[in-house]
Simulated assay, not measured.
Amino acid sequence: MTTDREASPWPGARLHVVTGKGGTGKTTVAAAVALALASAPGRVLVAEVEGRQGISQTFDVPPLGTEETRIARLGGGGEVVGLSVDPKTALLEYLQLFYKLGRAGRLLEKFGAIDFATTIAPGVRDVLLIGRIYEANRRRRDGRHKGDAPAAFDALVLDAPPTGRIGRFLSVNSEVADLARVGPIHSQAESITRLLRSAQTRVHLVTLLEEMPVQETLESIDELRGKGLRPGAIIVNMVREPLLDDAALDSARAGRLHKASIRTQLADAGVPVTAELVDGLLEEARDHAERVDLEREQLALLEATGLPIVALPALAGGVDAGSVRELADLLVPLFAGHPDATPSGLPASGVGTGAGA
Rank of each mutant, 00 (worst) to 15 (best):
Y99A: 12
A160I: 06
H186L: 00
A254N: 14
R225P: 06
A348K: 03
L208P: 07
K259Q: 08
E297P: 00
V271S: 10
Q200E: 15
A155V: 11
K100Y: 15
G183N: 11
I192S: 09
I114V: 15
E135S: 04
L331Q: 04
E6Q: 04
L282A: 03
L35H: 00
R291C: 09
I235Y: 00
A136R: 13
T201E: 04
K100A: 12
P62W: 13
E79G: 05
I262E: 06
P347L: 07
A336W: 02
A267T: 15
F169D: 01
D4S: 08
A267L: 11
P343Y: 01
A355L: 05
R52T: 09
I133T: 06
L64V: 06
L266V: 05
P162L: 05
L128M: 05
R240A: 10
L74V: 12
T69V: 04
G280R: 14
A348H: 02
L208K: 08
D287R: 12
R286I: 10
N137A: 12
T66I: 04
Q96T: 01
A117Y: 09
G317C: 00
R230S: 14
L218Q: 10
E50L: 00
L224D: 03
G105W: 13
D293H: 10
A13S: 04
L195R: 06
P213N: 09
E48Y: 03
L205N: 08
K100P: 00
A341H: 13
V49Y: 00
L257E: 07
G183E: 09
S344I: 12
A316P: 02
F153E: 05
L301V: 01
H186E: 09
V33H: 09
P213K: 08
G143M: 09
Q188H: 12
G51S: 05
P333S: 08
K110I: 12
A32R: 00
L281C: 03
L208Y: 04
V214E: 08
V44A: 06
E216G: 02
L294C: 03
R202E: 08
P339A: 14
S8G: 07
S349Y: 05
A149V: 06
R197G: 09
G147V: 03
V172H: 01
K146H: 11
D4R: 02
V29S: 05
G345W: 06
F335H: 05
L205Y: 14
L209E: 02
E290D: 13
Q215G: 08
G82A: 02
A267I: 13
M212T: 10
V49N: 07
N237S: 01
L108I: 02
I221T: 06
L97P: 00
G102P: 00
R194A: 15
P63W: 13
R52D: 04
A90I: 07
G318C: 05
L74N: 08
A155K: 12
A304R: 15
L218M: 11
V176L: 11
E326I: 14
N137I: 06
P162I: 05
R202Q: 12
V157S: 07
V214H: 03
G76S: 12
A267D: 14
H186Q: 11
P213R: 03
S220L: 09
T58R: 00
A260L: 13
R286E: 13
V33D: 15
